[in-house]
Write a protein that binds this DNA or RNA. Structure first.
Length: 367
DNA sequence: AAGCCGGGGCT
DNA sequence: AGCCCAGGCTT
């Protein structure tokens, strides 16, 4: 192995051992903790994950506790984190680990990889961090670091590039130090070799960083851009209860698959784009909403605009206009057309999982 | 290979 | 306000 590689592995390990962050999932060595943290850390920052991880582990301290929990509780514990299929896959996998492996995460790459929600990165992370096995764990941080240090111009959005990086990353693991080294690589990407303004002067491997020496630290890694999200206009209804439902709001549960699966929301409809409806006036908009609600068995009259809200997913941009509505009549709502409706106040919300968009609107309404 | 899945931080 | 970040699954 050449000097540049040896130097990298040695210096990075030394740096990490002096600079590793004290994180909740690093306080004890427990494969279940490693697993939960790695799933939460997919697409999510450390600072965001910390409080979720603490709450999640106190609610579900073991694989078995997670396997045996009601699904709604798991989803509720994930509320606000996003990518909710992660939570459902994690529980599915926990049931598998409970029944097939006696509740112990197996020290076996093939078995770990076969679990729901665990792909090449996460299996590598679990095998290396929890069991100190010399497996690569190549995430976005690692690809950025390696692209820069070795001055690789391959597009990191391409699967073939990831395969190359995995080979390189495995080669770099110092004998017997897979756990620390893989964490060191990711730690460097998170703290020093950051996407926007890398702190090269603080970097333990700056001297042999080919990207930096070529003055290319800001153009690396090369990555094709994602398509912009598709805009969607939606009209939503804030239907306030009366009588026995006074002080509550009508909410519904989303279908079991697809976007925001099984999460709760305000009733709303997608405004068809054809008729140039983006420029619809208020009265027309309320008419459209009234018709949409009626079609679901809700006889409610929109009375006034309440708030506008925007929310961007990776591929869709929601522009939502919320109207206050007066309820005239409610048909049999429970399980109607397989859609579950419920009146909710702050108390009921404790048990229903909402995406952040609606969570914020409802908290705002109730406070 | 491309599209589907949330949410937040930085400038 | 607009840009960027990013694993795994499904098609």
């Amino acid at each position: 192995m050449d000097v540049q590689k040896r130097y990298f592995s040695r210096e990075l390990l030394i740096w990490y051992r002096a600079n590793r962050r004290d994180l909740p999932w690093r306080r004890h060595s427990n494969p279940y903790y490693t697993w939960v943290s790695e799933i939460m850390l997919q697409q999510t920052r450390v600072e965001t994950v910390k409080p979720y991880f603490e709450r999640f582990i106190s609610k579900f301290p073991t694989v078995e506790a997670l396997a045996d929990a009601p699904e709604e509780e798991v989803l509720k514990a994930w509320e606000g984190l996003g990518y909710y299929s992660r939570a459902r896959n994690l529980q599915t996998a926990a049931k598998e680990v409970k029944t097939q492996y006696g509740g112990q995460v197996p020290d076996d790459k093939a078995k770990v990889s076969a679990l729901k929600g665990i792909g090449p990165y996460t299996s590598g992370a679990i095998m290396s961090i929890a069991f100190n096995r010399p497996e690569p764990a190549v995430d976005g941080n690692v690809m950025r670091v390696l692209s820069r240090y070795f001055r690789l111009h391959d597009d990191i959005a391409k699967p073939a590039t990831r395969a190359h990086m995995e080979h390189l990353a495995q080669e770099l693991i110092p004998e017997g130090c897979a756990s620390d080294f893989n964490q060191a690589l990711m730690e460097l990407g998170a703290l020093v070799c950051t996407p926007k303004s890398p702190a090269c002067l603080l970097c333990p491997v700056m001297e042999h960083c080919a990207g930096r020496l070529a003055g290319e630290e800001l153009v690396l890694p090369v990555k094709t851009k994602a398509k912009p999200p598709k805009p969607e206009l939606r009209y939503a209804a804030l239907i306030e209860g009366t009588g026995e439902h006074a002080g509550k709001v009508l909410v519904r549960q989303r279908p079991a698959t697809g976007l925001l699966a099984k999460m709760w929301e305000l009733p709303h409809l997608l405004v068809p784009k054809q008729a140039g409806l983006f420029g619809m006036n208020e009265a027309e908009a309320m008419d459209v909403l009234r018709g949409g609600l009626l079609a679901e068995g809700i006889d409610a009259v929109p009375t006034a605009r309440w708030v506008d809200a925007e929310h961007t997913f990776s591929h869709i941009h929601w522009q939502m206009r919320v109207f206050r509505c007066e309820l005239r009549e409610l048909m049999e709502l429970k399980d109607k057309e397989r859609t579950v409706y419920q009146w909710t106040g702050l108390e009921e919300m404790e048990h229903l999982a909402f995406p952040n968009l609606f969570l914020r609107m409802l908290k705002d309404y109730f406070q």
